[in-house]
Amino acid sequence: MIPVHSITGALEIRKLSGINPDSIHRRLAHRDEHYQFVIQESGSTVMSVDFKTVPLKAGHVLCILPGQVHRAQSARHSHVWIIAVKREWIHETYRFVLDTFAPNHGAVALDKAMLPALHHSITLLHDMYISGDEIRFLPQVLRGATDVCIGICTGAYHRQHTEDDLILSRPVQLLHEFRQLLARHYLTMKSPAAYADKLHISLSYLNEVVKEQTGYSVSRLIQEQVITESRRILYYTDISIKELATRMGYDDYSYFCRYFKNATGMTPAQARKFSRE
């Protein structure tokens, strides 16, 4: 079973200052049941998210979604804020944008005009968070301040797309629905046509929408879902490759190994060893 970390309350916030290669907290990659925002104030940090390298520079934010395997790889003169927030404290609109676009963008640049507001908002949120019961209506106050911070961070992901009515557009709605279907059915549904049927649209239109919004084909996103979950299991468990193939929905062990190597350039065994180094 892959371990999932959780926070005791709805929110945790902390600042890490002056982190360098010799002082970075090196712990095993893990995944969380909550959303996590890494906001780089100065210096630089390199994260691994679902076994992909994600660099952060000053003025960047990284949203790590629930279930994504991640860890810090390196840092230099790094000053970062870490905000962990449970799902129910994030507005539905923000979740829609983050769940739909964060997997394809990694870390994104914050709007420079919003940086001062974000700095003040995070500092205020942190001060109130550590004040504890000294503030009346603390949960409500914290939730409001959190909403401001997460809204600014989510706006950075929204800015990657130019349409003002992005969230309401039919293509974005379809991409969101496709991602939800994929997360639920990737073990049993490997055919792009099956997802198009579920969405009651043609395969050509689904491919057009997904390609336009992510730069990848439907089959590529299906492959990424399968390979990402396979790598998570390889990292955390010692099950055999044959058992992994079966768990991923492949009766043909040899085909699964070829499929995995074609996607990653490594065999499953090599990927397991590489991820644990």
Rank of each mutant, 00 (worst) to 15 (best):
I90E: 10
I7P: 05
G67M: 09
I7S: 04
L28M: 08
Y35W: 09
H30N: 09
V80L: 14
L56G: 02
I39M: 07
L65N: 15
I82S: 13
V54P: 04
R87Y: 11
H77Q: 14
I39N: 06
V38N: 10
V61W: 02
M47A: 02
D22W: 01
H60P: 00
I39S: 01
K57E: 15
P66I: 07
H60I: 02
D22A: 00
A84L: 14
H70M: 09
F51H: 12
R14G: 13
I64G: 03
S48H: 00
R31D: 03
R27Y: 08
R87M: 10
F51A: 05
H70C: 06
S17Q: 15
H91T: 11
I7M: 03
G59D: 10
H30R: 11
S74W: 03
R76T: 10
E88W: 03
I24T: 07
L56P: 02
L28Q: 10
L65H: 13
H30I: 06
H34S: 14
V61D: 07
L56D: 00
V85A: 15
L16N: 12
S48D: 06
K52N: 15
V38E: 10
L65W: 07
E41C: 06
S48I: 06
I7K: 07
S74H: 00
A72F: 01
Q36Y: 06
I13G: 03
P66G: 10
K86S: 12
E12T: 14
I24C: 04
I7C: 05
S42D: 14
L16H: 10
T8W: 07
P55L: 08
T8S: 13
V54C: 06
H25F: 13
A72E: 12
T53K: 13
W89Y: 11
S48Y: 00
R26A: 05
P21E: 08
G59C: 08
E12G: 11
H60D: 15
T53R: 14
H91W: 09
S44R: 08
Q68F: 03
E33L: 02
V54M: 03
S44P: 02
L62D: 08
T8G: 06
V54E: 09
S48F: 01
K86I: 00
I7N: 10
V49W: 03
L56K: 01
A58D: 09
Q73M: 09
I19T: 11
L11C: 05
K15F: 12
K52Y: 04
T45A: 12
S23D: 09
E88R: 10
Q73E: 10
I83V: 15
W89F: 09
V69G: 04
H70V: 04
A29C: 08
V61R: 00
F37L: 14
Q40W: 01
H60M: 12
D32Y: 01
I13R: 05
F37A: 11
Q40N: 12
H77C: 05
S23H: 02
H60L: 02
F51Y: 04
W81L: 09
S42C: 07
A10H: 07
S44W: 01
S78E: 10
T53D: 13
H25S: 15
T8Y: 11
F37C: 08
D32H: 12
K57F: 08
H70N: 12
R87H: 13
K86C: 10
R71E: 13
